[in-house]
Write a protein that binds this DNA or RNA. Structure first.
Lengths: 144, 144
DNA sequence: CCCATGTCAGTATTACTGACATTG
DNA sequence: CCAATGTCAGTAGTACTGACATGG
């Protein structure tokens, strides 16, 4: 019959973990003055300096319109700057953005560390690999 | 310094996996006429018949006001029924709701199965355990 | 010509906070 | 009295779809 058993469903466990992580991040990041979405974008821009808006959107799994709007806010906050015009616009952190991200990143790293407290190195690696594996597998058949 | 490296961050991998799963579920469930949130609530009500709205809210990690609103929609669709009054209201699936959930559940099970395609049983178990472990760990210190 | 991109606009979904009555 | 619950309202944050100009 292949139904979903809520207690052994990896999908449900995924949701639990994500919700808990998101709540923890939300709480800490709010103190720093960033939403989770803003933080994620800053992190990705820092990892790939000069990225385009469209690429950023793909990186955080939303439409380019959504990131476009988000970036507007980040620009007003002077956390990012856009270099280039027309179709060739590249995103970079401002010095202020880099500082803010550094602070946020440390806070998030602390949360992740606490979250992984009960897992040894080999389990962490296996978890990371498994998560990346299932994300890749699902992405293979994605319609959008 | 303990910063976040996007490529080895379990938090980011978690987000990737969750986004991919959510997108896949969203697509399939839409055909069945349910949102992901609605599906999740139905699944939880099925697993714990007679659950209260407040418990449901905790189970899906949102406010009781959010589930209250969601339940209104499910009632209009005749998928659930509420038994009891005042503070003692208990949620149950209607026959229609049970049928719809069964269909949705099979679709979601298929997605999960595809997603886990590359993982053997021992890895699946380890993944499940690790996810539940980190969710529990984070929940320990949650403010809300 | 085609496709990807940036961008403007409108809309919808969802969850949140605040507030209040009820009840064990 | 207190804490939890159900419930009504209002608000906000986020993402989506549609549409269009631009440029490689």
């Amino acid at each position: 019959m292949s139904q979903v058993d809520i207690d052994t469903s990896i999908g449900y466990a995924l949701k639990r973990a994500t919700s808990a992580l998101r709540a923890a991040m939300d709480e800490r990041l709010r103190e720093i003055g960033l939403t989770v979405s803003q933080y994620s974008s800053l992190e990705l821009i820092a990892a790939r300096p000069g990225v385009s808006n469209a690429d950023l959107a793909r990186g955080v799994f939303v439409s380019r319109q959504a990131t476009h709007q988000l970036l507007g806010g980040l620009r007003e906050l002077n956390l990012i700057e856009v270099i280039g015009e027309g179709r060739d616009q590249r995103l970079h952190l401002t010095p202020t953005g880099a500082r803010r991200l550094k602070e946020a990143s440390a806070a998030v790293a602390a949360i992740e560390e606490r979250m992984l407290d009960g897992l040894d190195q080999s389990r962490r690696k296996m978890l990371l690999d498994s998560l990346n594996d299932i994300a890749s597998t699902l992405a293979t058949h994605t319609t959008s």
